[in-house]
Amino acid sequence: MIQRNLLSGLLIVGLLSSPAFADPALYERARKEGQVLVYSSFNAAEMVSLKDAFEKKYPGVKVEHLRLAGAKLMQRILAEHQAGRDLADTVLIKGETMHVLGQKGLLARYDPLEDDKNAIDKMFRHPENLWTTVYLAVHSIVYNTRRVTPKDIPRRYTDLLKPQWKDKIGVSTTKYIITYALMDLYGKEKGMDFLKKLAAQNPVARAGGTLIIELVGAGEFDLGFSVNADSVEAVKKRGAPVDWARLDEPSYGDIQATGVLSKARRPNAARLFSSFLVSKEGQQKIADLDNVVVRKDVEPKITLDRSKLRVIDPAEGNRIDYYMGLINDLFVKAN
């Protein structure tokens, strides 16, 4: 027993002395808390990879994970808070949801890049350190590689309006924020005109970007809109005949950020996990999962020019009901 405790102590001392290790005092406090509960919309299977990497780096701090879609996740956090039963310690969710949580005072100030501020551009960090971007979910168009010839792959969003795609498009109702992106790209009037013309193409609405991708792979549709590029890569790895369109016009990225909840029961473990997500090691692990990470010293595996990406303003979270209503009126009620 004495020998085992000695070896354990030597291991911890060795870890704490590592130059790539987070604040030793923070880790020691987190280890006493024992675990961290993460709420996120991150792919559950991929979270296992992050969990294993974190637990290997920080022995004694276990990761528990609850995955829900963005809107449902926010509803759960708000409901638990109103009931006085705040359970989650930290979150990894989209920027619009982070914005709403911050406005409601549910996020604690924490800068996981305190000693490495230049690693991630200021545009990806909250000015008051309520959240830090981990990666970008890039909106795109998915196509069936067996049914869409190279010359017909969409190069612009407006290519979806070509007569050949009538009745052959699937639309994700959960990617409602794309309506903001299109009105930002084309202007409000032209953006709305595009959306109305797209609705006239008789697309089939389904709840979920991954579902749309899988249906495109199964031949249910030739094209799918809007979906995340990293989700297409994941489905493609499983052997589905799908790929995503590399557009000639700007693509939009949805911020996926980490933050510590103000009522976290294990605040130190929450801070440690958030720090890991934006560390070079954590970002490399996330990049290996085909996500578009934001650290300057880590290159995403997806072939994408990050300098040409436009970022969806998290403040649009205040208008979630408006954008959800647009998608519903244009594509759901019409069906």
Rank of each mutant, 00 (worst) to 15 (best):
I212F: 03
I169F: 02
E214T: 13
V216W: 05
P241L: 10
F273K: 01
A240H: 15
F225A: 00
K166L: 08
S226V: 14
G170C: 08
K236D: 14
A218G: 15
A234P: 08
G191N: 05
S231L: 14
Q256F: 07
T149I: 09
R238T: 11
R265D: 14
F225M: 04
K175I: 11
A229Y: 06
T173I: 11
F273Y: 02
P163R: 00
N268H: 13
Y252E: 00
Q256R: 08
E249W: 03
G191H: 04
L182Q: 03
F225W: 07
L182S: 04
R246G: 12
K168H: 09
L261H: 04
W244N: 06
F221P: 07
G208T: 08
P250C: 04
G259V: 05
I153E: 04
T179F: 02
L215Y: 08
D184E: 09
G239K: 10
R246P: 13
T158L: 07
D152F: 13
M183D: 07
K188R: 15
P163E: 06
P241A: 13
I178R: 00
V171G: 00
D167E: 12
M183A: 07
P150C: 09
L185V: 11
G259F: 02
S172N: 06
E249I: 01
I177D: 01
R265V: 12
V171Q: 00
D243A: 08
K168L: 09
K151F: 14
R156I: 04
R147Y: 10
E220T: 15
K237N: 15
Y176Q: 07
D222H: 12
D152W: 12
D159A: 05
Y157V: 03
G219H: 07
Y186D: 03
E233Q: 15
K190N: 12
L198P: 01
N228L: 10
R246V: 12
G187C: 01
L247Q: 04
V260H: 01
L211H: 13
K175M: 14
A240N: 14
V216A: 09
K175E: 12
T173W: 03
E214K: 12
L195H: 01
D248Y: 02
L247K: 02
R206C: 12
L272G: 05
A181Y: 00
R271N: 09
K168A: 10
E249G: 01
R206Q: 14
K263W: 10
I153H: 05
L215N: 14
Y157R: 02
A205S: 06
A218D: 14
